[in-house]
Lab assay of single mutants.
Amino acid sequence: MSIQHFRVALIPFFAAFCLPVFAHPETLVKVKDAEDQLGARVGYIELDLNSGKILESFRPEERFPMMSTFKVLLCGAVLSRVDAGQEQLGRRIHYSQNDLVEYSPVTEKHLTDGMTVRELCSAAITMSDNTAANLLLTTIGGPKELTAFLHNMGDHVTRLDRWEPELNEAIPNDERDTTMPAAMATTLRKLLTGELLTLASRQQLIDWMEADKVAGPLLRSALPAGWFIADKSGAGERGSRGIIAALGPDGKPSRIVVIYTTGSQATMDERNRQIAEIGASLIKHW
């Protein structure tokens, strides 16, 4: 067993022997301040990774656009098919120029040779490549099948209805392509620590998230040296922004954090800054 596999296998073990965790309302004060600064709703939840206990939450059962955070769930569904012998990570998928959609920095470079399922998941999570996500959605049967996968996990809230990039439209009061912070946090925890996926697939999923290259201005910008984070960000229309993450000190994750916002007129930089400040408060009061 590799060191990384050992780390993920012992996530519940280490967490069980940690000192009790206590909620700190100071972080919620910052979440509410972010709402004021952005002029928009902000949803927040913080779960203990081992027990699933909610440590703090704000608007945990209000719907927010998922945006690209759905790509972690998508690759979880792909990995479940791999575990069941219905898919192979090494299978190569070929596609054409007509398949390319807006923001496809990886797939646009491989029109000639195609990409493997493993490479597509890596591109979808680490670079948020939209064509990679659409190609992977095709392998599982489309958005409705991802929703069905989530329902089978016990998540009857999260739903995907459309493809990239239309799913980022974020129309107010439109339930399409949305989740709730509580539902997303619980589902992410199941994917990373539950028995739904094999140990190898859980490790692969967290490795992809740990290698995320496009979430630097968010929670990662607030992390002290030595902290662990595996995350996936999302951005959408109407001032929408979000991030889902597993993080913790001492090089291992111990909490799940989900943050979503929508309806702001603020710039992307300002949305990023507010999420980073929430992260800084979380870490300060850990």
Rank of each mutant, 00 (worst) to 15 (best):
R273D: 10
R63M: 07
A276T: 08
W163L: 09
L223F: 04
R189F: 15
F70R: 01
K144N: 15
F58I: 07
S221E: 10
G141W: 02
M209Y: 01
S264M: 07
L150G: 05
G234P: 00
L89D: 05
L219N: 01
S254A: 13
L146C: 05
P60V: 12
V157Q: 12
T187W: 05
L219V: 10
L205G: 01
R189D: 08
K213R: 12
R220D: 00
L160F: 08
S51G: 09
L218E: 01
N173Q: 13
E277Y: 08
T138I: 13
H156E: 12
R59G: 03
L28R: 12
I171R: 15
S201W: 03
V72L: 06
R238F: 15
G154R: 07
S80K: 14
A222V: 15
G242P: 02
G142F: 03
A182G: 15
E102D: 15
M127R: 11
D99M: 10
E108Q: 13
T187A: 09
V31W: 00
S240C: 08
C121A: 07
D99V: 09
C121L: 05
R220K: 05
M268Q: 09
H24D: 10
G142Q: 04
D250A: 14
L247Q: 03
P143Q: 07
S281K: 15
T112D: 14
P143G: 06
M184A: 06
A225I: 10
G263V: 05
F58S: 11
D129A: 02
N152W: 12
H110I: 06
T69S: 06
G90M: 13
Q88D: 15
I259D: 02
L135Q: 07
M67R: 01
H110G: 10
K109N: 15
D174E: 08
A235H: 00
T69G: 01
P217V: 10
A84T: 12
A246H: 05
G248H: 04
P60R: 14
L38R: 05
T107P: 02
T262Y: 10
G226R: 10
I125L: 10
M127L: 14
F228W: 10
L38Q: 06
S96L: 13
V106Y: 08
A183K: 10
A211K: 15
A77N: 10
T112E: 14
P65C: 02
E270Y: 10
A40C: 06
P172W: 10
A185E: 02
T198Q: 11
A280M: 15
M115A: 06
